[in-house]
Write a protein that binds this DNA or RNA. Structure first.
Lengths: 144, 144
DNA sequence: AATATGTCTATAGATTTTATAGATTTTAAA
DNA sequence: TTTAAAATCTATAAAATCTATAGACATATT
C-alpha cells in the first residue's frame, strides 16, 4: 500500500500539473483543495522540490510550481521518492536493493523469480502513468 | 514491501511443501532451518492453519503439515492472508476495498486506472506462483 | 504418569507513519 | 523602509504497525 505521504504527493502534483506554467501556487491552496494537512504537505513539497520535480518562489506572491513537464513526471519517480522501493522484496529491487535476511542463498531462492516478474510488470504500468495522462483522464471523467 | 511475517510464512510453506505427505514437521525444525524466531512462527503457522492451508497434530510426534496440495497454494493467498491487500491503493483492492480518504470523488479520479492496471498485472504473476512451482525452481537452482 | 508438542493470551519493544508547533528567512509590495 | 505573505528549517509528539517474547494451558503419545 502506498503511504498517505505518497498519495498526498501524487494529488498535489496532479493539482500543480493542472496549473502548469501559470505561476506559483501557494501551499495553503493545494492543502485546501486536496484536503491535505498543511504542515505535512510542506514537507512533501520540499522533498519534491529537492528532487527538482517542483520549484518554489518565496515571499509574497510565491508558492510552488511544476518544474518538469507534466509528461516527464511518472508515478515511478514519485513513489520511489516518497515510499522507496517499488518491488515487494528488497532483494529484487532495482533502486533499493538489499539482501533478504531471511534468505540463506539468493542464487538458489525459488521465490525471487515471481517477484522479479511482479516488479517488471508493475514498472511497465507505472512508467506509462505520467501527470499529463492522469490529468487528461481526470478531465475526461469530470465532463461526464 | 512484504512484511517479515509474510516472508516467514512463504519460507515456512515452501519448506513444508518439500515435506508434503511425509507426516507432521514440528515448529522448532522449521524455525531452525528457515531462521525464523520460533514464537513468531507459532503465530504464523496458527493463522495458516485457521485458513486451512496447513493442518496440525498435537502432542508427541506432532507438528504442522501442508493440508492443501502444493499446486493449490499460490502467493496471492499467502500474501493476502499475512499482509492484506495486494493493490497499492485501498480503493482498487478486490478483497480489501476501502474508499480513499484523500479522494473527493472516486468516479472522477484519474489515478485509480493506473493502479488497477498494476493490481491486475500483479495478480496475474502471483496467481501462477504456487508452492509446487517455487519448490521445483528451488530444486533446479540448487543442483547447479 | 511423563513428556513433547501445539494453542492461547498478554504484553512489550522497536520502528515507521502521520501530524503539529514555532522560529527563521526571503520576497514583494505598500 | 516597513509590513505582510509566503516558503524553510528544526524539533517533537502522537498514533499506528510490526516484530518478538513470555508463560500458562490443552492435547496426544508413549
Amino acid at each position: 500500500m502506498l503511504s498517505k505521504k505518497c498519495k498526498y504527493a501524487i494529488h498535489a502534483l496532479v493539482y500543480l500539473a493542472g496549473r502548469y506554467q501559470q505561476g506559483p501556487v501557494h501551499i495553503q491552496e493545494i492543502a485546501d483543495h486536496q484536503h491535505i494537512p498543511k504542515k505535512f504537505l510542506e514537507a512533501i513539497l520540499l522533498e519534491l522540490r529537492n528532487a527538482k520535480i517542483l520549484n518554489s518562489k518565496k515571499g509574497k506572491g510565491g508558492g510552488y510550481y511544476l518544474y518538469k513537464k507534466p509528461e516527464e513526471v511518472n508515478l515511478i519517480e514519485i513513489i520511489r521518492l516518497m515510499d522507496g522501493a517499488i518491488a515487494m522484496l528488497p532483494c529484487v529491487s532495482l533502486n533499493y536493493y538489499e539482501p533478504c535476511e531471511e534468505c540463506r542463498d539468493e542464487k538458489t531462492c525459488g521465490i525471487r523469480d515471481s517477484f522479479i516478474g511482479v516488479r517488471d510488470e508493475t514498472l511497465k504500468v507505472l512508467k506509462e502513468s505520467n501527470l499529463a495522462k492522469i490529468l487528461k483522464r481526470e478531465k475526461a471523467l469530470g465532463r461526464k
